[in-house]
């Protein structure tokens, strides 16, 4: 095998005049691809409370609970009271979430969706518990 010393030198010299490979992230915006998965959001109107998301969540980060204020039963066209659709709240524990978005995939009513909002660090742990009402 032919030994050729200092092969890295021309390469290193070439790179002296190149733009830095790193990005100045907190000062510059990070480049994200379209399918990047970050914080999951919840739409109350669509949720039917099947709790499939709770069943598939590998980190047990999501919780669907009955909302505090439920709508009053309405009167139907025949005069009898009709039960109103139940409303649900969603609690997202961002400190547990691993952003796999399996919950979004499994939701039959598309009540959950993922965003690209990834800057979620907090100093106070309580702030990581999001209550979508």
């Amino acid at each position: 095998m032919a030994k050729k010393p200092m092969r890295i030198l021309p390469e290193a010299a070439k790179n002296l005049f190149k733009k830095a490979a790193t990005s100045k992230y907190p000062f510059e915006k990070a480049k994200l691809y379209e399918g990047y998965r970050a914080r999951v959001v919840f739409e109350k109107e669509k949720c039917i409370g099947c709790k499939m998301c709770m069943r598939v969540c590998p980190a047990k980060a999501i919780e669907i609970i009955l909302a505090e204020n439920q709508p009053q039963p309405q009167t139907g066209p025949d005069g009898n009271p009709m039960p109103a659709k139940k409303l649900f709240d969603c609690i997202m524990n961002l400190d547990r979430c691993i952003y796999c978005v399996q919950c979004v995939e499994v939701c039959p009513k598309k009540a959950l969706a993922y965003t690209q909002d990834f800057e979620l660090a907090q100093l106070d742990r309580k702030k990581l518990k999001l209550h979508y009402k």
Binding site: G35, I98, C100, V101
Partner: peptide, 25 residues
């Protein structure tokens, strides 16, 4: 330094296709 810089290219590919750099899911 050079190999790790070039590795970013393939990590970008993975992020583009799967949505994440490391745990592709």
């Amino acid at each position: 330094m050079y190999t790790w810089r070039d590795r970013e290219q393939v990590l970008d590919c993975l992020e583009m296709i799967t949505g994440n750099r490391v745990h592709y899911g």
